[in-house]
Design a binder for these strands. Structure first.
Lengths: 341, 341
DNA sequence: CTGTTAGCGCATTCAG
DNA sequence: CTGAATGCGCTAACAG
């Protein structure tokens, strides 16, 4: 088995706890105790162990520890699109927060295929102590069926549409969309466009629900839907259609597309906000530096990542963690929206 | 040890290979062989094993496998700033490429402190089969000293300043900076500003070296350095200083700052490129949608991430992998640079 | 306080 | 082709 036989004295394999035990003249248990900072070890012995360990450049195998302890100090994160800046910010907050408590993060990009998402989640989870699913694409049913096996787990960015038995951290996209429309209404706009997000994404559906609610409260509104997407180019592509429309206000699925739209509108000579008010979603860093600075709905992705970790940590510690209310995006008014003429 | 005694028949612990062996009436070795797709197993037995496994919802413990096989199918990545979009793109390329070959990625955000960077790298590496260090901040000496213990490892975005005994994937920031200056010179600009990056970052030093070389070839140039940073806000903050300068061309450390600068300049009524030419670095997605679209030097971070994985994979397979030339950023001319008046 | 023993879950040599 | 035995490296009960 060992590729070098029993006595591989001169090969470069890492020293094991046994090696340290031998050279320190103690048992492996004692080495283990010293390495784990147990107090109940004679000072002399402890010192001998420490120097032996140093001499051999010994570092405990975390894999062996994992097997023995039954925990890995690692948490898995599944993300549908790792190229999405929003998800990356979540990852950032989550990674930093968990690192503070000695945990590492295993990332898995699930891609757009909902088929593989769950399989990936299961696999990634199996290597770790817990799981965070960011904005899962899978159906509610599939999710509910599999989540029990995945616990501790938390789901971020998905409305807990039925009674979901995992901790979930929702973002109230609907109320955000509603607030966007209300803002445009207050400015006197009545003919509106919604540049939609990915058709099957639940966050797009949520926004549509918000639009519907706003429309109920303001029956005089016209809200035309335009096929969008999620990327800069999608927003840019849509500019001509928006420009020729009689609408005076546009609510865009996300800031990225809003940026593309702003650029396209500028090329077409449409003045924002004079000729057209534009409002985005997310409040990415760049929003404040757009020309004109972009009015938008702020979603604090980094802090949501942090909160996701706090949830998970509570679960790991078997603490009760009260389900928080869905996060309501906050309106940030800048210069891309203005009074209707 | 087992918190439930020998016969925890009714607790929810995952089935182990032994459970499957018992219910299938075979040995654990046979189960192992079946699970790993060894052909040399009687079809009947194999079938019995498979159905037992299915019935018990058995999934092999990857931790136990790791210990037994001596490999984890996981690679570690250290990143100095996980909030840096460029590094995230590297991570994206790397994650997807490695996933294609059945590897998972463990991310570790090392933060700005070079002190902890190496310790983090060692710790993360110890859980994995290999390591990618993205743009390490540590000194060359420290790096050289520790890297041998970390192999297989590759370093991305750092000039192999002395003979470095790990695979490294360098980006030739210096030649990029030179190309930026040359571009401005060709447009007739002679009074130039460099909005500098983080003072101690090696990628900033590299750009400075490029500027020096360009200045040697064009002794008539004046290149004034302005204290910048790396973020949008830094670029914005610097706008006034740039605006009041007699310079007509600005080379900015990265696109993010260039964006901030563009916004600041617009607020001050400085027309780009008429009054001032601006050139960035990186070619982030947004660059083409800036107003005006940003001339910049393209660094293909995603593909660099992919190449980093290819390197690492070659190392893991003990294949020889020829050291490639440092990547030379490519000039992308858009509308933010123009003829000097 | 320290050493002995057993076991985490799996893969693999070696007999049979 | 199959099973028994052994080891991966570490931790934790249990004696002493």
């Amino acid at each position: 088995m060992g590729s070098s036989g029993r006595d591989g004295r001169r090969d470069a394999r890492r020293a094991t706890i046994s090696d340290v035990a031998v050279t320190a003249g103690v048992s492996r248990a004692t080495v283990s105790r010293v390495m784990n900072g147990r107090d109940s070890v004679d000072a002399d012995l402890a010192e001998r162990v420490r120097s032996a360990a140093a001499a051999l450049d010994y570092r405990p195998s975390s894999i062996a520890r994992s097997l023995s302890l039954g925990r890995t100090q690692t948490v898995a994160v599944t993300i549908p699109e790792l190229d999405n800046p929003m998800f990356q910010r979540v990852l950032q907050g989550f990674t930093d927060a968990s690192a503070d408590q000695g945990y590492r993060v295993l990332v898995a990009n699930t891609g757009d295929d909902p088929q593989t998402e769950l399989a990936t989640a299961v696999e990634a989870r199996s290597r770790c102590d817990a799981l965070l699913m960011v904005a899962p694409r899978s159906s509610d049913e599939a999710l509910h069926e599999i989540l029990p096996q995945l616990q501790p787990a938390v789901v971020l960015g998905r409305q807990p549409s039925s009674r979901i038995d995992v901790s979930s951290l929702a973002i109230d996209y609907a109320s955000g969309a509603e607030a966007a429309i209300d803002h445009l209404v207050e400015l006197g706009h009545t003919d509106l466009i919604y540049v939609a997000g990915p058709e099957h994404s639940s966050s797009n559906r949520d926004r549509l629900a918000g639009l519907a609610r706003a429309n109920e409260r303001h029956p005089e509104l016209t809200i035309t839907q335009v096929v969008g997407g999620a990327q800069l180019a999608d927003g840019h592509r849509v500019a001509a259609e928006v420009a020729k429309s009689p609408a005076t206000g546009v609510f865009v699925y996300n800031d990225l597309m809003a940026f593309g739209l702003l650029a396209g509108l500028a090329e077409l000579g449409v003045n924002v906000p004079r000729d057209m008010s534009v409002i985005g979603f997310d409040d990415i860093d760049l929003a404040g530096y757009a020309q004109p600075p972009l009015t938008t709905l702020a979603v604090p992705h980094v802090s949501l990542g942090v909160r996701a970790w706090e949830r998970l940590e509570a679960l790991l510690a078997k603490r009760e963690d009260p389900q928080a209310e869905p996060y309501r995006p906050e309106l940030v008014v800048r210069a891309s929206t203005g009074q209707a003429r």
